[in-house]
Amino acid sequence: MTLKGGTSQACAACKYQRRRCSAECPLSPYFPPEQPKLFQNAHKLFGVSNILKILKNLEPGQKNEAMRSIIYQANMRDKFPVYGCCWIICQLKYQILQAEEELHAVQAQLEMYRQHHHISSMQQPDDVTSQLELGMAPPSNGLSLFNHTTPPQNYNAMPAAALHMPQQQSYSNDSKGVYGYIDAKDINVANSFWVQQPNYANNNNNPMSIQSHELVVSQQQTIQQEVVQDYDELHPFFDTIDDRQSYIDSKEAYESSSEESLKDTTQSNEHIADNELKSAAARFSLTSVN
């Protein structure tokens, strides 16, 4: 708000009403001439006489605030001709409802974390598997599972207990045979990289390509047909392997746990690298299922 000088331009109210703006003009402090819209809005909703009537009954210290609220109310009526300030009130109430809902949700999550943290600090490390089964985030001791210094027995115990899939270990071993060079922390980068590597995709981990190769094998070699069918039944588990790649840990742990299947897989990879895809698929399915 700019105070108007006695000899300067008339305030917006006086200008609008085409009258002389005296030094005692009660509206000049609130309606500067450079903002005629402020006065137009207030005049349209309240009218000058009603504004003056409101101001007349107030203490001098209250007039500033009263004029601020009158101008705000008039501006809102100009913006929202039907609802005026009620529109703002409705929006604020809605905002409060939303914020309260979100706050309750966050508080509930925080409470869950606190309880979880409390429970996990009381429990032994081998309880991590049961928490993983429930789909809960692993507590602080679960982080050690992603560490390369983890003893191999912890790593071996996890997939079998948490995933409840007998085949999981052999498949994860196959995946590990390919992913061996990938650090577990960079697994997301590895996944995006994986898509861009057609050679790797065709070799082992793209289920569709393996399936198509095996169909060729099954047509030509009827002896292996049953094995191929078994493999097809297991086929969907590849999807779950992708989701659980983060559980696949260090190369040392893997090598100590399943040397036999690693050898088979490595052998398969070599064959595939030599473009012997048909026999590779047959070998792969035999070793994987068995």
Partner: peptide, 10 residues
């Protein structure tokens, strides 16, 4: 509330 009117609620 002559000073604030409905703006007080806001």
């Amino acid at each position: 509330d002559p000073v604030y009117g409905c703006v007080g609620a806001i």
